[in-house]
Design a protein around this nucleic acid. Structure first.
Lengths: 196, 196, 196, 196
DNA sequence: GACTAACCGAGACGGTACGTCCGGTCTTCCG
DNA sequence: CGGAAGACCGGACGTACCGTCTCGGTTAGTC
């Protein structure tokens, strides 16, 4: 990315963008096909048509690869709309988050990464820095816009409100495994907005 | 236990209770000492002073062992008190759940199991059947007691209320990694009770 | 053996003859079916319908079992005929030895035992004591009978003569793997008798 | 050797000659030290300072390793001298064969391989192809040289003569366990030469 | 236009742990 | 007290990946 990697196949002036892409795609595909436990670096290398050493030159672990793949895929996702109607924007955003987590390939990668982050502080930090921080910013957006518009009760703690909407969604996905319906997300939004 | 396993060291009339205990304790200890990733069945066997085959005779995987260890440890934990005051009981329970998740050895095992359950449906099912189902029952108890006492607004959806309190707690623990303070849990309880 | 074992199934008055026979037959059968390398004590026990401990109570190793099985089977075999004609008796005996080694089940057991005796001195000693010593006596018989009849040149070293006939037969069977034909054994006999 | 394996430590252009040698020497040493039965591939790997997988990459079994070790060691051994005197050359050769079989490390490996070849046809074939065939050629040499010199009775069957000398030697070594004395081998040679 | 440093594929290597098989021992209950 | 059953500790099996290390080939800027 960025401009260092061009079309060459790799030499002292830069890495092979082609190899990079092959690896990320192979990792994505294999995660979906065989699952996290059976995802191996050797398998990724073979599927990508790349030497194992090439992977070790640029990534430190399979989590590192998945993290890159996830960042690339999920880069622009999950920015809430801005219709000027707080309730509507929140309801739509909550639904989108639920769909992302339960129905998309990127969501599968996210769940795998979140799982591994439980026992890998470095991964947890990267996930926080490169995704969760930004995502929290997105999750706060509807409230901040409403605040600017003057539509928001000044007593509202935005971080708490975000936790109260997002928390139960992630809880169902990661812990209880229950389906996350539209009724459920709408109710969560309404509960937060009806308070105060 | 149960009557099948007695004092013998294992023969055709039953397994060795001593070996069973050694394995579960070794697994617990090693998880805390070296972490999930470096927890191996060979390591458990060595620490427990047990042959590897004895482990494979009774358990199918290291997750299976951890599940047993967790069920044994967490069996009686996290039952909410009953003071007759719904708000008080909920606040105390929420604090206890948070402490369990973040500060106890059993909580560490739970987080590891929840993580692995993301890519192991069989483990997810066992976790649901042997812990989460029962725990949800416990989490509902304060509301049900209040309902019986006539202290609860009849319009309250108990399952939703539980998700709204527990969801954000697990979300912070498993996803964002933020600390779960007493203020946070109290506020969650109050938000649920103030609605309607 | 001996008379201590009768029809009972094993109690304080002696071992079970039935179990003994089952084990020896199972060992014989399995040796032919799966070969020496895949012959296991557990396999013999299962096939014989006998507990492993019963085998360990009476035998020390699978070689020990095979040795018993072999002694029982080959007990009366390979005694040379006595027609009064040294050349004829030797030729017939040499042919019988060759047939035993190459074409019989007992011969297969013998070859397996001889092989293992190369790296098991205890087995070598038992094989010598319980079979080879007796067999050497049988191999010498035609010469001794001829000696008594006065048909044998007094200068003949009987042990050497036996080695010169038997040696090449065993050599072909155990080492070169060449077929041992009637022409070959007849020639060996003639060569020994023509000398002197 | 031969050009494929050079000084490198093993890469796609060839294997590590150093590892190959370590394994063969470790196998040789351990066979003598602990005996065939206690010779394990793990033991060889540890002694050789080599990974188990490296052994499995290049050899199929411990017999395969021993076969390689034997071929390398015994390559040039046991070629009979050529003094122009058939009786003398045969006597010397017979004594050398006996000494090889009973007193040398390579002979110990040979006996182990011959033993295993009884129940391993593939090993028997390799032993035949890579050693016994060549050795039989060597064993025939004195007779062939004498034939060329015109010193040999044309009626002599060389293969039979070789069997009559070598057979009893191997028989004593592999079967009866009797010592193979100089008198014994000399007598065998004389018996073959005095016929006709 | 030859040189050269970094990247690339390929894959051998020393390791660790896997899950299985079997050896030999021990314990329990039955006959 | 012998035997059936089978759990137990121990150790080796053969396999799968790990992460490291050469190799020879390729490529693009430099001299």
């Amino acid at each position: 990315m960025g401009g260092t990697a061009q079309k060459h196949r790799g030499n002292r002036y830069g890495r092979s963008e082609e190899a990079r892409q092959s690896v990320l795609e192979a990792a994505d595909d294999l995660l979906v096909e065989v699952g996290y436990a059976r995802l191996t670096i050797e398998g990724i290398a073979e599927r990508a048509g790349v030497a194992k050493q090439t992977i070790y030159r640029w990534w430190t672990s399979k989590n590192d690869i998945l993290m890159d793949a996830f960042v690339q895929d999920a880069a622009e996702a999950l920015i809430p709309s801005d219709t000027g109607d707080l309730r509507h924007d929140l309801r739509t955003h909550a639904r989108n988050v639920a769909a992302f987590l339960t129905a998309s390939d990127a969501g599968a990668v996210f769940r795998a990464l979140t799982a591994q982050a439980q026992h890998d502080p470095a991964l947890a930090a990267r996930l926080q820095a490169e995704h969760l921080g930004k995502q929290r910013g997105h999750d706060r957006l509807p409230f901040e816009r409403a605040h600017i518009r003057g539509d928001l009760d000044p007593g509202v703690d935005i971080d708490l409100a975000v936790d109260q909407i997002m928390g139960p969604i992630y809880y169902r996905v990661l812990v209880t495994g229950e389906p996350v319906t539209r009724e459920f997300t709408d109710t969560l939004v309404d509960a937060v907005l009806s308070r105060g």
